[in-house]
Design a protein around this nucleic acid. Structure first.
Lengths: 211, 211
DNA sequence: ACGGCTGGGTGATTCCCGTTTAGTGTTGGA
DNA sequence: TCCAACACTAAACGGGAATCACCCAGCCGT
């Protein structure tokens, strides 16, 4: 009599009910609200209402609110990473690749301001470990892809000052600073963002790299 | 019979009760907690407990939570402005003044990370208008003071690309990006912050200014 | 001496947030 | 037919900011 007790056999029963659709529906609704209203505007209850389900139901499919928004952000960052990989493959001067990547990065930020803020402007103190590892590794992979051409430039001896890592970090930080200010202080009277991006790229690249 | 009705005569009655001390006590307690635990950690209840008073009492002296933290931040930004004014008076090359101001700016940010985040990294959507005007004008006055030497550089025809305003904004944004990343992502394996600050300044100044 | 006014303070309450607990109706396999 | 798992819900919890209706001590002119 092999008594089967408490065995958590996975998918002994097919997930037939449309429960497996819910997850996608939730993500879809959450993304809309998050894009429109930001992190604090994307409330559990609001998302649940949009899906037409009780707020408790979200916890069937996600551990907590952060997991929902992190999953959305993950998708977005993956698109950015794909962009970087594509640019990395282009057979042009490493400086040109660096510039293309940074342009793509800034455009991505301005196109996805709420995602950008969540990923790159928050301290992530309230984000649990596995979520951090997921997202940080993804962000780090972006940074690594970006670092490659910078290291190539360094290997050519064209770095004016600092190590390759420092140069990569400074290039990233400079562009991050520009887009984060444009995003968080939109009402300030900025010069045109295109102009600022160009001056930032020209300035940093000319300042850090010899030609 | 000069009937005195509803006349809000100021200090008709001496503020005898230690009520006029409360405001200072609240700010002091709030600043400690805010510095230690950040914006979300500095709750009304926690501040009130620290002062030894009910949470409602804070609303006797401040309109809302933001006003308390804004007042604290205002003080801090005023110190930064004073620093800028002091540097502006130094009879050295404008490029040297720019560098000194940006160094002071970044040092200030790293020394006051929570204040810095509140003022320079938040969208300020939940901040009412008068508070914004106060703080924005203060921040803008900092930026204006910083812009002066940049305009001098431009007047000397030493700007490699972009207008003076663009150059000032890019210099600011670059330094902001560096310190904001160092503050919000402290666990990432950064190069030394001093090295990064130097590379950022060298890079931007060399890239934007001819000598 | 005394009643009224008022500044400072409070406890309870409101509303919203994320999250948890306990329970409900349906369904498919034994 | 029974029952266990599933997908879900209503209600509640604890904690946030902010507000409400009060209270009380002290100063005022009388």
């Amino acid at each position: 009599m092999t008594v089967v007790l408490k065995k958590p056999q996975k998918s002994a029963r097919k997930p037939k009910g449309d429960g497996h659709l819910r997850r996608g529906e939730i993500l879809e609704a959450a993304e809309k609200i998050f894009i429109a209203e930001g992190y604090s505007g994307a409330t559990i209850r609001k998302i649940a209402d949009a899906v037409g389900v009780s707020s408790t139901a979200l916890y069937m499919h996600f551990r907590d609110k952060d997991q929902i928004l992190m999953e959305i952000s993950n998708d977005a960052i993956e698109r950015l990473l794909a962009l970087n990989i594509q640019i990395a493959a282009q057979p042009v001067d490493p400086v040109a690749r660096v510039r293309l990547m940074l342009e793509a990065y800034m455009t991505f930020a301005l196109d996805n301001p709420n995602t950008y803020q969540l990923v790159f402007c928050s301290t992530g103190e309230h984000i649990s470990q596995d979520k951090i590892s997921d997202l940080l590794s993804l962000g780090d992979r972006c940074f690594e892809k970006f670092s490659e051409p910078v290291h190539q430039i360094a290997a050519q001896g064209r770095l004016r000052s600092g190590s390759a890592v420092e140069a990569a970090e400074v290039l990233w930080a400079g562009c991050h600073g520009l887009v984060s200010l444009l995003i968080t202080k939109p009402s300030r009277g900025w010069s045109s963002s295109e102009g600022l991006m160009k001056v930032m790229l020209d300035g940093l690249l000319h300042g850090l790299v010899t030609d």
